[in-house]
């Protein structure tokens, strides 16, 4: 329960205030779930984005696509990952027991949280995970500011 200062209380109470609060809390509840175990978007591939002081790392889970066939492009602040997965060759003569792998074209664009040095971006693929490291632009790097004693 939030603490309300006496002076903040309105003279006429909104009769729906409690319901509105309840609705807000319910909304927050639904938004909050699944935040941790993967607030997954519906767009392939799934991405993990992290940063340290010098770089931004974007990791994409793209199994079944050879490293050379993933297209990565950058335009301003937007990083785009594009490609096609061709693992599922449909053969009529095969009898399938399970068909769970997806295939087809994919494209995903994300806005980077900071300016990066476009000419120093590196990408490498290992075991179906593509790691893109983007060195931050000098202006976006954290800087310590010393306080001088005057």
């Amino acid at each position: 329960m939030a603490i309300v200062r006496f002076a903040d209380q309105k003279l006429f109470r909104n009769p729906w205030a409690d319901f509105e609060r309840m609705r807000r809390e319910l909304d927050a509840l639904f938004q909050g779930s699944g935040q941790d175990a993967g607030g997954r978007g519906a767009v392939f591939p799934a991405l993990n984005v992290s940063e340290d002081s010098g770089n931004i790392y974007v990791r994409a889970e793209i199994p079944g696509v050879p490293a050379g066939e993933v297209e990565i492009s950058i335009e301003g602040d937007t990083l785009t990952i594009r490609g096609e997965r061709k693992t599922c060759t449909v053969e009529e003569k095969y009898s399938y027991h399970r068909r769970e792998l997806e295939c087809g074209r994919f494209s995903r664009a994300i806005t980077l949280p900071a300016k990066v040095q476009v000419d120093r971006i590196g990408a490498q693929a290992a075991n179906g995970i593509v790691t893109i490291s983007l060195p931050k632009a000098e202006a976006a790097k954290p800087r310590q500011i010393k306080v001088n004693v005057g």
């Binding site: 793209i62 199994p63 693992t87 027991h97 792998l101 290992a126 179906g128 995970i129």
Partner: peptide, 22 residues
């Protein structure tokens, strides 16, 4: 892991998607 399993006359084939596994 998501899998595809299909059978031919000679063999059973399994494709399993396990990104990050070496």
């Amino acid at each position: 892991p998501a899998v595809d399993i299909f059978e031919t006359a000679e063999a059973v084939n399994v494709l399993a998607e396990m990104p990050g596994v070496a």
